[in-house]
């Protein structure tokens, strides 16, 4: 069929077409505001972050400890209603050096998002599930970051914490 058809529809526009006013378009802004209830599990998680603790949820049926907390274990569908503090240390499972923001603005100094496998949670050393958290790394030169690096959370001062994942400022390397 591609050999049978010579002309395909679809008209490509260029920035120039817009700059020269050749194209009419309708510009609008959609505004939406939301207040999301945290629920039982994440509510507990956020309250604990305010106290300087990272909570995990434990499933004693299939033996997993993961974070963030949730009310159901999706692996066995039993309740996950026991929330226990994990350590605020762990291992860098993976990371990136990111030179663009969420809305594609360029930045000179990269953000360092990472997945950190937290101590006290399920570990990839013993199975396919891990208690990993997405956060950022700080107090480290980008070229020094590596997978397997030990890190520890750096918290906001207690009086500034508000019950948010940003109560952890970032994770920094643990000095050997």
């Amino acid at each position: 069929m591609t050999v049978k058809i010579k002309e395909f529809p679809g008209t490509s526009l260029s920035e120039k077409d817009f700059d020269e006013g050749k194209i009419l378009f309708n510009y609008d802004e959609l505004k939406g505001e939301f207040a999301w209830d945290t629920g039982i599990a994440i509510g507990s998680y956020l309250a604990a972050l305010k106290e300087g603790l990272i909570l995990g949820a434990a499933c004693y049926t299939c033996h997993k400890i993961v974070t963030p907390p949730r009310t159901v274990c999706e692996w066995c569908f039993d309740p996950m209603d026991e929330y226990i503090p994990l350590l605020d240390t762990g291992v860098v499972n993976t990371f990136s050096l990111c030179y663009v923001t969420w809305d594609v603005q360029r930045i000179e100094q990269p953000e360092i998002p990472a997945v950190i496998m937290l101590d006290g949670a399920s570990s990839l050393d013993s199975g396919p599930i891990m208690g990993g958290i997405m956060h950022k790394l700080g107090e480290v030169k980008p070229e020094k970051v590596h997978i397997g690096m030990r890190v520890k959370a750096v918290w906001k001062p207690a009086e500034e914490r508000e019950g948010s994942v940003t109560d952890i400022l970032y994770f920094k390397p643990i000095e050997n």
């Binding site: 963030p68 993976t94 923001t101 969420w102 998002p113």
Partner: peptide
């Protein structure tokens, strides 16, 4: 609640 506060970029998950 748990991720968007960090201002994640879609590129993050691919890069990670």
């Amino acid at each position: 609640t748990t991720e968007r506060a960090l201002k994640p970029n879609l590129l993050w998950i691919f890069a990670l």
